[in-house]
Design a protein around this nucleic acid. Structure first.
Length: 386
RNA sequence: GGGGAGAUACCGAAGUGGCCAAACGGGGCAGACUGUAAAUCUGCUGGCUAUGCCUUCGGAGGUUCGAAUCCUCCUCUCCCCA
């Protein structure tokens, strides 16, 4: 792997970079669509690529369980198995320690999961996680960590951090040389000193890049921003910084300004399947009745496949009737929107005016439909018509 | 012509004297969703001048302190036999 910082924004900590990985190059800051089960839900790899995505995520816990590494190995590795020949990053299963909290028990050695499908027990240790990730053959693999929930008291955050650091050592030891690179993950909750301690510890071990973990787990947005900014600044300049699991379009724009190089989030794909799409003006719940007779594209001027060929009224109709195509079109649009957003971010940094780009974007983008006078006007109109 | 069953909110369907503005499902409307146990989950769904009031369980009348629920008549629907 080679990571090059091409340009630094004069007014913010934002930076433009390029990642050279085993399966290709990725311009940063980048957004990585999430494909937990070796598929970005509802869309084909060609469609993912057409949105502009150059790297995607997959998941160790889920793929280790089903179909299991033997089958993926026999298929010729994850890339061949899922027919995606660009870079892949696999998450270690650390997030499942958080999201499947009711089904697992943490010990010093690792985590015992009661598998959510069959109920049988599976132990994930740092060595096992790395072993699975190497077998899958992703370009970037992640150290096994504990993602503690919010709120976590200082004592718990402290313990959890020690565990994550121990696991980082073991992850590093288990990682054999090859085209794959291993990233460490910074934990420490919202505590500055713990984040500092974690970064120090990880740097001592030495990783190709660093994930900032433990955010977007329910903490107030301001606290997430504060912690992300602070933590990003602690990390070595020459290595890629990956803010794990976040976020909304605004969060990406804000946090790219902290010097984050990589993002991933389920928001564009999940929101798409659940009937929400993004536009430069904010979130639009295309499922809603306001759009039943609205024959404009999801976003005017958008170049995505969905917007080139279909209208809000049609896509709402598809959602309303439970048609699969609704999920596909909304997902394609959202992924394109995210990639278009990142293209804008990169261009602005290239031009050295990231601050202005941020301001313009945030001024236009309304995250809550209720903030939008246009949306509430539209709702009122719909009510009158009914 | 004879016998039987039924009519409940937008639809289907429970309820058979007070705890009923009425279970449950569908539909509709809205909200949530952040390293995906998610094509999922949650809320609302008669009206209003709203800790209460008004209208509503096919229609009209009656019994009762009180009726979707009991009685009488009427209207309509379905099934079986001729």
């Amino acid at each position: 792997m080679k990571f090059t910082v091409l340009k630094k924004d004069p007014a913010t900590a934002a930076r433009r970079g390029r990642l050279e990985l085993a399966h290709g190059e990725v311009d940063t800051p980048c957004f990585m669509p999430v494909g937990t089960q070796a598929t970005v839900k509802s869309v084909t790899p060609e469609e993912v690529e057409e949105t502009g995505a150059r790297i995607i995520l997959a998941n160790t816990y889920h793929l280790g369980l089903r179909p299991g590494i033997e089958i993926v190995k026999n298929a010729g590795g994850l890339h061949a198995f899922m027919h995606w020949d660009r870079p892949i990053l696999t998450d270690s299963g650390g997030y499942q320690v958080f999201s499947l909290a009711d089904l697992r028990e943490i010990s010093k050695e690792g985590v015992v999961f009661r598998d959510h499908i069959e109920g049988t027990l599976h132990t994930l240790t740092p060595a096992k996680s790395i072993g699975i990730q190497q077998a899958l053959g992703a370009d970037i693999i992640m150290a096994f960590d504990e993602c503690p929930p919010y709120p976590s008291g200082r004592e718990y955050a402290c313990q959890s951090l020690d565990l994550t650091l121990q696991w980082a050592v073991q992850s590093r030891k288990s990682h054999t040389d090859g085209p794959q690179v291993l990233f460490g993950i910074v934990q420490g909750g919202l505590h500055r000193d713990l984040r500092e301690k974690c970064v120090e510890g990880l740097e001592e071990i030495g990783f190709a890049g660093y994930g900032i973990g433990g955010l977007s787990v329910g903490e107030p947005r301001e606290m997430m921003f504060e912690t992300a900014e602070f933590t990003a600044a602690l990390l070595p300049e020459a290595k890629p910084r990956y803010l794990m699991g976040t976020g909304t379009p605004e969060e990406l724009v804000v946090q790219a300004g902290f010097g984050v190089d990589m993002f991933d989030c389920t928001v564009p794909t999940r929101y798409g399947r659940n009937g929400s799409v993004f536009t430069r003006e904010g979130k639009l719940v295309v499922r809603n009745a306001v759009y039943k007779d609205d024959h404009r594209p999801l976003e005017e001027g958008c170049g995505c496949y969905a917007c080139r060929h279909y209208t809000r009224a049609y896509i709402r109709h598809l959602f309303n009737t439970g048609e699969i195509l609704a999920h596909r079109l909304a997902t394609i649009h959202n992924l394109f929107f995210y990639q278009e957003l990142m293209r804008g971010v990169r261009r602005a940094i290239d031009q050295g005016n990231y601050r202005k780009f941020q301001q313009d974007f945030l001024e236009n983008f309304r995250s809550e439909a209720s903030d939008s006078s246009e949306a509430s006007d539209a709702r009122a109109t719909a009510k009158r018509r009914n």
